[in-house]
């Protein structure tokens, strides 16, 4: 097992068999195979709460993505210094500080989105995916890989939020990315689409039960795709 840097920490795991680069493996894991929502089934509470529109899902996804990347980078850089007895408090301190900074930033610069997401911004701290991934990956891998992993996991999570948000918004209000210009800034305004004009709305999809059903459908769909892919490779 090659040492990737000096210091009393375990080196990165070797590349998967078949010559796949570890970067590709990290990307594949974060975006699909080990997706925070569809495979790990973590962070379902904020997922269901904010995905009534695609815009809110995108907003929370980007905030979480930032925290995932930044926390992975910092925790990985400090992994040689963090010792077991104080591991959890230190990790939580770092993650909570990052989330608070994001919260302040959003209140100052993205105020409407901040109001729409409300409590769920500070609740990013409780997102198991962040602390869990820090424990499993960031504290055992060098910064470049850990940061990339944070990015991929974050993108996978954001993808889940946007897809679920999009489905629920489309079925529930007939629009996609409603108020994107207002919430995220004018650069995002191009996303706004009214797919079904004068839609009376299917309320169930916007309420939590509808969210669960849609999520279940997406998970089943992913399993189906995975199974087909395996069958083709067999």
């Amino acid at each position: 097992m090659a040492e990737t840097d000096a210091g009393p920490v375990p080196a990165a795991a070797p590349p998967a068999a078949g010559g796949e680069s570890r970067w590709r493996r990290i990307a594949r894991e974060g975006l699909w195979d080990n997706n925070v929502v569809f495979t790990q089934m973590l962070a379902l509470c904020p997922l269901l709460a904010v995905t009534s529109t695609a815009t809110n899902g995108l907003g929370l996804g980007l905030a979480t993505l930032f925290v995932m990347v930044a926390s992975a980078a910092v925790i990985s850089a400090l992994r040689g210094l963090i010792t077991d007895p104080v591991r959890i408090p230190v990790l939580i301190l770092l993650i909570a500080t990052l989330v608070t900074l994001v919260d302040m930033f959003m209140e100052a610069y993205l105020n409407r989105l901040y109001q729409a997401l409300g409590l769920f911004i500070p609740l990013i701290v409780t997102n198991c995916a962040i602390l869990g991934r820090a424990e499993v990956f960031a504290s055992r891998h060098p910064p470049a890989e850990a940061t990339f992993d944070g990015l991929m996991m974050g993108l996978g999570f954001t993808g889940a939020l946007v897809v679920l948000g999009g489905i629920r918004e489309l079925l529930g209000s007939g629009t996609l990315f409603e108020q994107a210009g207002l919430m995220l800034g004018d650069t995002f305004a191009f996303l706004e689409v009214t797919v079904i004009p004068d839609y009376s709305g299917f309320l169930l999809t916007i309420l939590p039960p509808g969210g669960f059903i849609a999520l279940g459908g997406l998970m089943a769909g992913k399993r189906l795709l995975d199974r087909r892919r395996e069958a083709r490779q067999a």
Partner: peptide
């Protein structure tokens, strides 16, 4: 060491938060 580490991290985090607060206070 454990104690110092935790204390130092806490100090650094607090500093970051104070700076963040000052930078965003007016806009908020």
């Amino acid at each position: 060491y454990h104690v110092t580490l935790l204390g130092t991290v806490a100090l650094l985090c607090s500093t970051a938060l104070v700076i963040g607060d000052q930078q965003t206070r007016e806009r908020i």
